[in-house]
Structure formats: C-alpha cells, structure tokens
C-alpha cells in the first residue's frame, strides 16, 4: 500500500470470520499530512468490514478532533488500504482451503 504517513494495523487477531474488527491508527510521518497534527497517540476503533465505509470513519475522526478536514482523504485512504488487505488475506485463506 502507498505510504500515506498514516499507519493502520489490526488491533486483534483476525479469525477470518468476524465482521467487526479492531483497528489501530497512528501518524507515522506528520510531514505527509497537510494540516498540523496534534500528537495525540494511536486511535483504537472497531470497523465493520461489510457495512462501513473507511471515508466515513475518517470523517468521524475529523469531527472528533483527531485530524483536520484537509486530511480526511489521506486518513480514509489509509483505512481503506488496510481493510482491502484484510479482505484480500481472507479471500486467499478461503481459496487455499478449498
């Protein structure tokens, strides 16, 4: 995935089945953000892999004061990339099991 300066990792082991999964997001390189970033730490949250949209969660983070509006796209993309990877791994696991 592209290096956005925002890192998103799994915050629990993926059993390959649960729809809602715990993620952890933190800023690895503040220089890649357009807005001035407050060093608040890592943000833990749960994400519904089926029903939720990464950009909506990013917008909620903006509204909660973690990021500025100008960075909503980069935060959303970072979450989207991680979610895509989780889904890809799951598909690969399922297909290799068949």
């Amino acid at each position: 995935a592209e290096d956005t300066g925002v890192r998103v990792e799994l915050n629990e082991e993926d059993d390959g089945e649960k729809v809602s999964i715990a993620l952890k997001l933190w800023v690895e390189d503040p220089k890649k953000l357009k807005g001035k970033y407050k060093d608040t730490g890592a943000i833990e949250f749960t994400f519904d892999l089926v029903n939720e949209v990464p950009e909506v969660v990013a917008q909620e983070m903006v509204e909660s004061g973690f990021f500025l509006d100008c960075d909503v796209k980069v935060v959303g993309k970072s979450i989207r990339d991680r979610v895509a990877l989780i889904k890809w791994r799951r598909e690969r696991t399922v297909s290799s099991g068949n």
Binding site: W26, E28, G41, A42, E44, F45, T46, G65
Partner: peptide, 27 residues
C-alpha cells in the same frame, strides 16, 4: 500508558492509547 476515550456523535468509540514505539518504523 494513559488512555482516553472519545465517543463520536454517531456512537463510535475512539480509544486513544500510546503509539506502539517498536512498530513506528517497520520496513
């Protein structure tokens, strides 16, 4: 480390925790 909880109006919980230092610069 210290943690703080922020609940967005949509009901989502954000928990702020220390950045995992060992994982800051993974290759």
């Amino acid at each position: 480390g210290e943690t703080a909880q922020v609940v967005h109006s949509a009901g989502r919980k954000f928990i702020v925790s220390p950045v995992p230092e060992a994982r800051l610069k993974e290759p």
